[in-house]
Design a binder for these strands. Structure first.
Lengths: 111, 111
DNA sequence: CACAATTGCGCAATCG
DNA sequence: TCGATTGCGCAATTGT
């Protein structure tokens, strides 16, 4: 609840004048505090906006990584199935697997 | 460069008084505009903060998904290698691959 | 109680 | 011309 201004800032003193050195001093201090506080708010605000930009970036990177991993996984599973369906063909056990996996990675990179 | 205030807001009119109805009207309008503008700023600020929270969450979800995919991939590659190193053992081509892949997924889910 | 920080509000300059 | 922004100060209130 905001009460109407009571014209009394300095209890004990009868009146306040704009010229009162004590008053002026207080005003100066407060004005500085206000500037400081608002500067702080501004900085935090800017930082928050930067945070949004950064997080969006990270997000994209992660999405891309997921795409890559998914493709790789699909590819590997396909390899599995391909070889499974070759009743009499070659299978992974006979190809030199280091080589095969390398080929898998290369193929995935080109997708 | 901020010029010192020149006591003239209404060219053509000689003086400005706080009581001038035109002046008061202008002040009212501006005060409303100020309130509106600051409200808008405030809303945008809050929205930005919400955005940060949301993006952070999405990020976590994506990270988790990457973890899962990575494990799955590692697991599949291990399967490959295992069978590759069994010079004379069973290999993927002989196991019933649908069944094997199902087992792979189950195993991954428990990691 | 003293003092800094925050907040609502209005004024004036400036922008679009 | 006029609403929107912005820097700034005042005073009340809140936090330390």
């Amino acid at each position: 609840m905001k009460m109407p201004p009571r014209k009394v800032l300095m209890p004990g003193k009868k009146e306040i004048t704009k010229e009162d050195p004590v008053y002026k001093e207080k005003r100066n201090k407060n004005n500085d505090a206000v500037k400081k506080s608002r500067q702080k708010t501004k900085v935090k605000s800017e930082e928050t906006m930067r945070k949004v930009a950064i997080l969006k970036q990270e997000n994209e990177v992660l999405e891309e990584r997921i795409q890559l991993l998914s493709k790789e996984l699909t590819f590997l599973k396909d390899i599995f199935l391909t070889h499974a369906n070759r009743a009499h063909g070659l299978d992974a056990a006979h190809l030199g697997l280091g080589h095969l996996l390398k080929e898998v990675d290369e193929a995935v990179m080109e997708m």
